[in-house]
Write a protein that binds this DNA or RNA. Structure first.
Lengths: 254, 254
DNA sequence: CTATGTGTTCATCATTCCCGAACGGCGGGT
DNA sequence: ACCCGCCGTTCGGGAATGATGAACACATAG
């Protein structure tokens, strides 16, 4: 897991352990959390009390919930990047034109994070929303990004996160993935044919900065029935590429 | 500031102090933060290192940024509540019909938090977005909520947060506010005539649960020039009330 | 009226973090 | 080139501080 810091502040770690557990088990109580985390009840209680006092956690009838204050931090994070603001209108017009689901993903710490998602009229329903984190190796978006990362970085990411197989079409071999990444660089487009979710395909293009480093990726996703032939292999890629181009241009002048 | 917990975990407090400061001063370095917070550099450094290791903070060329992981927590918080999902479509149709800015606010810890915002075609630009926190006493949304809170709770909130005057129209007298809250209960609608932002007016209605406790408030906001007469005092309130009704109904059956 | 489940309080002790001071690298004056 | 100032980073010792289990108050159920 990489190198570790010299003086890790333990309480910070436990704080976020508690918060993350609380996200999973919304409305949990002190005891439930203490069991889940193998921490003494009193410790959990102290943390929760402090968090409540600081308004990061809300207590309702003895059950705890994450506080709205996180919206603040989360919103800020999203808007920090011009990427969101710049990409959003382009995504909307793609959604309107294709009626499908349009996604924007960025890489952080070797994982993909959905930053924005716009739904066309026929858009499939996928559970994941803004902020959701996914592995990079088995999504079109992730591969589009990986293709433009330096090779040692790609290796590092695979070392750290492995190559899980979410469906039978997932790529699980490192060599195979690298071959595919090379193809993606050639074509400028990545495809995902049911690699992450059965029945779901997508086309994805990277958004690059002036030095061709990936700052994100843009995709159109839909059911396999609609995502095939000309449309998947040529129409959508063209649409995405020109959108990515506009975004890249706008980003460099701001 | 209310009663304090018995064993406040100091590190939790400083952790979030650092994070909040980092939100304000995005891209700050160790020294800048340490000055801002009156903490030794090394302490700040230790915290930041841990936060980085835990992926809540990203370091770029020695400058720090909030990590996208907060999107995760923030998104979750917003979606926790059915309120968002239920209200969103109603808000969109109001935005379309009025061309103005439609807001959804909930109360937490005596403050108002914007949970959702939908923009009509003519919508004014207001800086505040999702997650933004405001005082309750001088916004239409806040007053709509206060009007349906028990009186002792209202007093508590004023005690804790005071009654700041953001514009010359802001209400700063406790008695005056209470009179207005009574009026709001009578009418079922709250108005904000440039009380928080000069030139900006709004009409707001509360969203109530079965026991008439406020779970949020809905508003239409626009420039004073468009928000007056019939439209402000009767058309918009009617529209808002019926939307709130639909939301309230949907919420009770889910 | 016990029995088990909460959330909460409290005092103890040693762990853990606080913090000053020193290091090393970078960049910009002069 | 030099030095100075500024930055992020490292280190270690001492003491504040959070971890902890046991006990408490309260509810709910058998």
């Amino acid at each position: 897991m990489g190198k570790r810091a010299n003086n890790p502040v333990k309480s910070v770690v436990t704080t976020f352990d508690i918060l993350q557990t609380l996200r999973r088990l919304d409305g949990a109580g002190v005891t439930e959390l203490s069991n889940e985390l193998d921490l003494p009840k009193s410790s959990v209680y102290n943390y929760l009390s402090t968090l409540e006092q600081e308004e990061y956690v809300v207590k309702e009838d003895g059950t705890y919930h994450l506080g709205l204050r996180f919206l603040d931090l989360g919103r800020y994070v999203r808007e920090r990047d011009d990427l969101y603001e710049t990409a959003r209108p382009e995504m909307e017009s793609i959604a309107e034109e294709t009626d499908e689901l349009v996604n924007l993903l960025v890489e952080e710490h070797g994982q993909g994070v959905y930053v924005c998602r716009v739904r066309g009229d026929q858009a499939v329903n996928v559970a994941a929303g803004t902020g959701h984190r996914v592995a990079l190796h088995n999504t079109g978006l992730g591969k589009a990004i990986l293709a433009y990362l330096p090779e040692n970085r790609v290796d590092e990411i695979i070392d750290n996160h492995g190559m899980s197989a979410d469906t039978e079409h997932s790529i699980t071999d490192r060599g195979e993935l690298k071959d595919e990444l090379a193809e993606i660089r050639d074509r400028g487009v990545a495809f995902d044919r049911e690699e992450r979710i059965g029945g779901l395909c997508c086309a994805a293009v990277p958004i690059l900065d002036l030095e061709d480093r990936p700052i994100g990726a843009l995709s159109v996703a839909g059911p396999t029935s609609r995502m095939k032939g000309e449309r998947l292999e040529s129409d959508l890629p063209e649409l995405l590429k020109s959108a990515a181009n506009v975004i890249e241009l706008n980003l460099t002048y701001s």
